[in-house]
């Protein structure tokens, strides 16, 4: 699994994940993901267009970091999730807490940033 920093602005963190967010994937990017999201404490966009698989360990990572951001009044949004990944987010109840945006424009709107 790969993690790419797409853009870092004063008011936004935009990262992209690629590959399978399974046991090995979580081990590979978990620490870096935490540092870039909850560690940076900014509104965060997570591009999941290249994530092909998501299991509960990955959901736990997203949830924990989004919860940490929420304690500081910041939001996390997932953008461009593939159909099965989106179904996993919705079935697990995660999508109700970490919104899924279709594109960056919708993501910016959900985050309240320009």
């Amino acid at each position: 699994m790969d993690l790419k920093v797409v853009d870092v602005k004063p008011g936004l963190t935009h990262i992209a994940l690629e590959g399978k967010l399974d046991v090995e994937g979580e081990e590979q990017i978990g620490r870096q993901f935490e540092q870039l999201t909850s560690g940076a404490s900014k509104p965060t966009v997570v591009d999941m267009s290249e994530v092909t698989y998501l299991a509960s360990l990955g959901i736990r990572l997203l949830f924990t970091c989004a919860k940490s951001l929420a304690t500081e009044g910041k939001k996390m949004v997932v953008v461009n999730a593939q159909p099965m990944v989106e179904e996993t987010l919705r079935t697990s109840g995660t999508a109700g807490l970490i919104p899924i945006a279709r594109d960056m424009e919708e993501a910016y709107g959900l985050l309240g940033v320009k």
């Binding site: 509960s56 959901i59 736990r60 949830f63 924990t64 989004a66 919860k67 929420a70 304690t71 697990s92 109840g93 995660t94 109700g96 807490l97 970490i98």
Partner: peptide
């Protein structure tokens, strides 16, 4: 979960 702050990450 009603909110992120009230929710727990596990059990899914």
């Amino acid at each position: 979960d009603e909110s992120l702050l009230a929710g727990e990450p596990g059990g899914r």
